[in-house]
Computed example of a mutant assay.
Amino acid sequence: MNSTNKNFLPEDIKEKINNHPCYCEDAHHHYARIHAAVAPACNIQCNYCNRKYDCSNESRPGVTSERMTPEEAIKKVLYVGGEVQRLSVLGIAGPGDALANPKNTFETFRLVREKTPDLKLCLSTNGLALPDYVDELVKYGVDHVTVTINSC
Rank of each mutant, 00 (worst) to 15 (best):
Leu90Pro: 07
Pro95Asp: 06
Arg33Ser: 13
Lys16Ser: 08
Lys103Glu: 11
Pro40His: 06
Asn47Ala: 15
His29Asn: 12
Leu123His: 03
Lys103Asn: 08
Cys22Asp: 11
Ser124Cys: 11
Arg67Ser: 11
Glu58Gln: 10
His30Tyr: 12
Asn47His: 13
Lys76Phe: 14
Pro70Arg: 03
Ala39Asn: 02
Asp54Phe: 15
His29Ile: 00
Leu87Ile: 06
Ser59Gln: 09
Tyr31Lys: 04
Lys139Pro: 08
Asp54Tyr: 15
Tyr140Leu: 07
Ala32Lys: 07
Ile44Arg: 10
Leu123Asn: 01
Glu25Leu: 13
Gly91Gln: 02
Asp143Ser: 15
Lys75Glu: 15
Gly81Ser: 09
Leu137Thr: 00
Pro131Phe: 14
Val38Ile: 03
Gln85Trp: 12
His144Glu: 14
Glu136Ala: 05
His28Ala: 15
Val84Arg: 11
Asn101Ser: 04
Pro102Tyr: 06
Leu78Ser: 07
Ser56Asn: 08
Arg113Gly: 02
Ser56Arg: 01
Tyr48Phe: 15
Ala32Asn: 10
Ile74His: 05
Glu58Ala: 12
Cys46Arg: 04
Val38Trp: 04
Lys115Cys: 13
Leu137Gly: 02
Lys52Ala: 09
Pro70Gln: 01
Val138Pro: 01
Asn101Ile: 02
Tyr23Phe: 15
Pro70Val: 01
Val112Asp: 03
Ile34Leu: 15
Val138Asp: 14
Gly94Ala: 06
Tyr23Ser: 00
Ala73Lys: 02
Tyr133Ser: 03
Ser56Gln: 08
Leu111Pro: 11
Ala129Val: 04
Asp54Pro: 01
Lys120Cys: 09
Gly127Ala: 08
Arg60Pro: 01
Val145Gln: 04
Ala36Val: 04
Glu136Thr: 02
Lys16His: 11
Val134Asp: 07
Gly82Arg: 10
Cys49Pro: 03
Gly81Asp: 08
Ile92Asp: 04
Lys76Met: 13
Tyr48His: 15
Glu136Arg: 06
Ala39Thr: 03
Thr64Arg: 04
Tyr23Pro: 00
Arg33Ile: 00
Tyr48Met: 07
Val145Asn: 03
Leu90Gly: 03
Ile74Gly: 02
Lys120Ile: 11
Asn104Tyr: 05
Gly127Val: 10
Lys120Phe: 07
Gly96Trp: 02
His28Ile: 07
Asp54Ser: 13
Leu121Met: 06
Asn47Cys: 11
Val80Leu: 12
Thr105Ala: 00
Cys49Met: 04
Tyr23Asn: 05
Lys75Ser: 11
Val84Gln: 11
Ser56Asp: 13
Glu114His: 12
Asp118Glu: 15
Val80Asn: 00
Cys22Ala: 12
Lys120His: 13
Gly96Asp: 01
Asp118Met: 10
Pro21Gln: 06
Pro70Asp: 04
Gly141Tyr: 12
Gly127Met: 10
Asn19Ala: 05
Ala73Asn: 04
Asn126Leu: 03
Ala98Ile: 07
Ile44Cys: 08
Asn43Thr: 07
Phe106Ile: 01
Ser59Phe: 12
Tyr23Val: 00
Ile92Trp: 03
Pro95Gln: 05
Val80Met: 05
Asn101Leu: 01
Cys42Glu: 03
Ala36Met: 14
